[in-house]
């Protein structure tokens, strides 16, 4: 069943930045792109389990803070050594100043 949950307020995330969002023992990363759109992925790098929210957002790339592995946060695609496993992404919508993500189903 699709389940939409409120992750944060729009203002919680700067443009071209990322924050961490924890929910029921799971951890996610919520991104705001330079074009002012929101995206969500799993919170941990697929290389070693490091929080991506400590990393750097550049255009549509999130760079892992630990060893600089890169993902496209819009598609989840791994974009550079040492990461080779893609990142899970989640649908996002913005309603009344709140960023909501759908974590029920599995999207890739």
């Amino acid at each position: 069943m699709p389940e939409w949950i409120v992750a944060c307020a729009v203002d919680d995330v700067d443009e071209e930045d990322v924050i961490r969002f924890d929910h029921h023992g799971r951890t996610f990363a919520i991104y705001r792109s330079p074009e002012d759109e929101f995206f969500a992925t799993d919170g941990l790098c697929t290389h070693e389990k490091v929080h991506l929210a400590d990393g750097l957002v550049m255009d549509d790339i999130i760079e892992c803070p630990k060893h600089n592995g890169r993902f496209n946060y819009k598609t989840g695609a791994a974009r550079g050594a040492p990461v080779c496993v893609n990142l899970q992404t989640y649908p996002v919508k913005v309603e009344a100043g709140k960023v909501m993500i759908e974590i029920g189903g599995v999207h890739g």
Partner: peptide, 11 residues
């Protein structure tokens, strides 16, 4: 501790 300095070092 942890990744406290990572982002700024990268910048």
């Amino acid at each position: 501790q942890g990744n406290a300095v990572a982002r700024d070092i990268r910048l």
